[in-house]
């Protein structure tokens, strides 16, 4: 993986809002991201609702589409627990089984 050699001196102090969508990197070839926990909703509104939730929202760290978000590593169990506690009944799919 190519590492950036930019120094801290070039950091610009801007205050724009951070996007939840992952930054587009120049990808000459597809990159495989493994061992991810995804939250997938039937409607975009439901995902918005989850992102706005004080408990679950901070644990969703990337949004891949209107209906799919990625859970912060190591927080899959916590997200499941919070979803159940919040009255959701998520279908749990273990992709490796």
């Amino acid at each position: 993986m190519k590492k950036s050699k930019t120094t801290s001196a070039s950091i610009a102090a801007t205050t724009q809002t951070a996007p939840l969508a992952p930054a587009k990197a120049a990808l000459p070839a597809p990159l495989l991201h493994t061992h991810l926990t995804l939250v997938e909703t039937a409607e975009p509104e439901l995902l918005e609702e989850l992102l706005a939730d004080r408990r679950v929202g901070p644990l969703l760290v990337a949004r891949l589409s209107d209906c799919v978000a990625v859970v912060a590593p190591g927080n899959a169990k916590e997200v499941q627990r919070w979803l159940l506690k919040a009255g959701h009944t998520p279908r749990i799919v273990d992709e490796k089984q």
């Binding site: 597809p30 991810l36 926990t37 939250v39 899959a76 009944t89 279908r91 749990i92 992709e95 490796k96």
Partner: peptide
């Protein structure tokens, strides 16, 4: 039906492309 509205996929693998055309 409510269960079908929300899915948590564990241990998922996602392939990232440069753009939609490449995918």
């Amino acid at each position: 039906a409510r269960r079908e509205r929300l899915t948590v996929r564990l241990d998922a693998s996602v392939l990232e492309f440069a753009d939609a055309a490449a995918r």
